[in-house]
């Protein structure tokens, strides 16, 4: 077994590399609060690795694999949206949150019909409402 310090150092370097792969504007945190109320710039999304990865999954893997997500928007669309809205780090965490809380969501969120299927309505706004609001807008 190798020393713990070496592993920790490796992990830190790995995390740093991943955080920097966002491009010239590495956005670990992008709360969007100061981005003039929901004006999510397309330029920011262009350098967002998360958006690229999630878009790739949605457009090339999920399209072939089939739509099995019980929620609306689908998890990959949700992920693209959340990466655009909140940047890489928060986007990643909220994507994980979506994947974890999918199983019991029908007990809380409303059901809608989309493309002939019943889906659980679970948009990004319902999952960041408690810390992120636009113009003090409070959706009920």
């Amino acid at each position: 077994m190798k020393p713990f310090a070496r592993r920790l150092l490796f992990l830190i370097i790995f995390c740093l590399i991943c955080s920097q792969c966002n491009g010239e504007e590495s956005i670990f945190f992008q709360t969007g609060q100061d981005s003039s109320q929901n004006n999510i710039s397309d330029n920011q999304s262009e350098v967002n690795t998360g958006v690229r990865l999630a878009s790739f999954f949605r457009d090339h893997i999920s399209a072939v694999d089939g739509d099995r997500c019980p929620s609306f928007p689908s998890c990959s669309s949700y992920s693209v949206e959340v990466f655009k809205k909140h940047g890489f780090f928060i986007g990643w965490i909220m994507t994980v949150d979506r994947l974890i809380h999918e199983a019991d969501e029908a007990s809380i969120s409303p059901l809608v019909r989309r493309n002939g299927k019943i889906k659980i309505l679970d948009p990004v706004e319902d999952n960041d409402l408690w810390w992120f609001s636009i113009n003090g807008k409070n959706k009920d």
Binding site: W92, I93, T95, V96, L99, I100, H101, I108, N127
Partner: peptide, 9 residues
């Protein structure tokens, strides 16, 4: 994500 999810739900 698990912690965020717990707070969120």
């Amino acid at each position: 994500g698990n912690i965020y999810s717990a707070v969120n739900v």
